[in-house]
């Protein structure tokens, strides 16, 4: 079994005050921004690693390889190293100035092409499963996972909060030797919905699906020996009209800082006594539709 995990570096929340935005393009200057691995990406990787350990524990011969893939500036090589230290078997970073400035459409295109290139490089027919974080802590569009699935022609399910690989026997009975089936549960406002789908498929997981493991010193040492590949567009040879800013139909409009100030009114000065102020507050609340 081979699981591809899409991961994304995002600006470090503890250093948001250091983020620079290009006034012309209105994009974050990611090259200079202190980054961390997106929390949802970590959940996606944790889910893949959990499945890997279950698959390998179920049968001594079974192997499950977890591959991490990201598109980001090369300064984020360490985020792929982090994935390897967490337990991924291999990591790929797609990094080229030509990929910069991409919206979700162009990003998903590059990731999908990267995924195909990994299949070719690893001599695989297909990934059995692709897992991604449902939405990143920065853009939070939720677009990329499903777009990648569409580019690859795979079934997909977003907002997954529970994921199982089940084995179905010939008569639809669950059994160790049967066809693997992805059982993914998503949470709606009304209920939990479980979908079942044969491999391969893409699922986008929410952050409540698991608690990602800590990276250990031993994991970091093991990561030294794991393959970490960086591909530029010289390797992928993608049409420059389809990637980066040129391949992005989304154009940023105006940037503005919302006014969150909360101006107060001193009703005692306006109306005299505290009792009058209380009446005035009541009247204001009623005006807003609150209170009887």
């Amino acid at each position: 079994m081979v699981i591809l995990v899409l991961v994304k570096p995002v600006p470090d929340p503890e250093k948001y005050n250091e983020i620079q935005i290009d006034p012309q393009t209105k994009r974050i200057l990611r090259q200079d921004a202190a980054a961390v691995l997106d929390p949802a990406s970590k959940c996606a990787l944790e889910e893949a690693l959990r499945i890997k350990s279950e698959v390998e524990a179920a049968s001594g011969d079974a192997r499950c390889e977890v591959i991490a893939l990201s598109m980001a500036p090369q300064t984020n090589r360490d985020k792929i190293l982090e994935c390897l230290a967490m337990g991924a078997d291999a990591g790929y970073l797609l990094s080229d100035p030509a990929f910069g400035g991409a919206d979700t459409y162009a990003t998903s295109y590059v990731l999908a092409e990267g995924a195909k290139a990994i299949l070719a490089a690893e001599e695989l027919d297909a990934f059995d499963l692709i897992i991604a974080g449902n939405e990143s802590a920065d853009g939070a569009t939720s677009h990329v996972p499903v777009q990648v699935a569409e580019w690859l022609g795979l079934p997909h399910l977003a907002r997954v909060c529970e994921l199982q690989i089940q084995r179905e026997g010939a008569e639809g009975q669950e059994g160790a030797g049967g066809t693997p089936v992805i059982a993914a549960t998503k949470k709606t406002e009304e209920m939990l919905l479980t979908f079942r789908c044969e491999e391969p498929a893409l699922v986008a997981v929410t952050r409540d699906i698991n608690k990602p493991r800590h990276i250990s010193a031993m994991g970091i040492v093991k990561a030294r020996k794991k393959p970490l590949t960086i591909w530029t567009n010289d390797d992928l040879k993608l049409d420059e009209a389809k990637i980066g800013a040129a391949g992005s139909p989304t154009k940023a409009g105006e940037l503005m800082t919302p006014d969150l100030s909360r101006g107060g009114r001193d009703l005692t000065e306006e109306d005299g006594s505290a009792a009058d102020a209380a009446k005035a507050i009541l009247a204001l609340l009623r005006k807003e539709g609150l209170g009887a």
């Binding site: 360490d78 190293l81 982090e82 230290a85 800590h214 990276i215 250990s216 010193a217 994991g219 970091i220 030294r224």
Partner: peptide, 8 residues
């Protein structure tokens, strides 16, 4: 590697 370790 040391930075990653510190962060971990």
């Amino acid at each position: 590697e040391q930075e990653l370790l510190r962060s971990a």
